Simulated assay, not measured.
Amino acid sequence: MIPDIRCYAILDPEHCRGRDLADLARASAEGGATLLQLRDKHGTTREMVERARVIVAALAGSKVPVLINDRVDVALAARADGVHVGQDDMSPQDVRRLMGPDAIVGLTVKTADQAAEVPVGLVDYTCVGGIFATVSKHNPDPPVGLLGLGRLADRIRLKRRDLPVGAIAGIRADNAEEVIAAGADGVAVISEIFMADDPRAATERLRKAVDRGLAGRTER
């Protein structure tokens, strides 16, 4: 399936000001999030499964798919909709084999070589990053910037034109339009939504900025 990655909310227990994960997930969905990922780098496996189940239950009926970062086992146990993996995680081939044909599988892309090697028949979207510097996620690589985003997106689309390309890291409502103009089909954010005083309103602002950017790209 081709997922809607326009407003991709990444919920990290370490970057949510200690608030309830279910409440935050619902607020983001109500504000216009089109996809939600649980990113939990430090929880135990049992904690991750429980958190994932809470989020899946909270978004039941919302039509917002729930993905798990890295962990296929957690996704399967919580009956999440899919998994997002990085270049050092389980291969997309193994993820697809374990998750099945109907799961959403996403892949992080950081370099031209990685873009050229995206297994387009196995993944449902890619996410390029980091675009800008960010404190929400440790990234030893320098930001690719808007120019790098455009180049990587073009390279991915040479392999499959309809494969959605998202962008991550340092993206806010006030720069989302230029990220879309540079070539992204959507933006993935952590702090912009889940560190905000009002996550629902923050999601609404971000979603509107993305939609404006996509509309402007279509007009050109």
Rank of each mutant, 00 (worst) to 15 (best):
G145V: 05
S136A: 14
A27R: 01
R96L: 15
T34L: 10
E192P: 01
P119H: 06
A209W: 08
E219V: 04
D70L: 01
D94R: 14
R97K: 12
K110G: 14
D73C: 00
P92I: 06
V74C: 04
L163K: 04
K110R: 15
R71Q: 07
R160N: 06
L152V: 01
G145C: 01
H42K: 07
I10F: 15
F194W: 10
I10A: 13
A29E: 05
Y125P: 09
G129A: 11
E50R: 04
G145Q: 06
V118F: 01
T45Y: 13
V144E: 06
I5E: 05
G32L: 04
V54K: 08
V95R: 08
F194H: 04
E47M: 06
G18W: 12
L21Y: 11
A9R: 01
L206M: 00
V128Y: 13
L59K: 07
G150T: 08
A112F: 10
L35D: 06
I171Q: 01
G100E: 06
M195G: 07
E47R: 00
D198T: 02
R53W: 13
L214A: 00
V74N: 02
H15V: 04
G86C: 05
G186C: 00
R17I: 04
M99S: 04
P199M: 09
A77W: 09
V54D: 15
T203N: 02
G170E: 02
A115V: 00
I5D: 04
A103V: 14
V95Y: 02
P3M: 01
P101Y: 14
I171P: 05
A33C: 03
V56F: 09
A57R: 11
L149M: 09
F194A: 03
R26H: 11
V128T: 14
G150L: 07
P3F: 10
C7A: 12
A133G: 08
P143G: 01
R172M: 08
S62M: 14
L163N: 03
G130S: 15
G129S: 05
S91F: 15
T34K: 09
T45F: 13
G121D: 04
V128N: 09
C16L: 12
D162E: 00
R157L: 01
V64A: 02
G183T: 08
V118H: 09
V210P: 06
G18D: 13
E14Q: 13
L36R: 08
I5V: 14
I180W: 01
D124I: 07
A78R: 03
V128I: 13
I171G: 08
M195S: 06
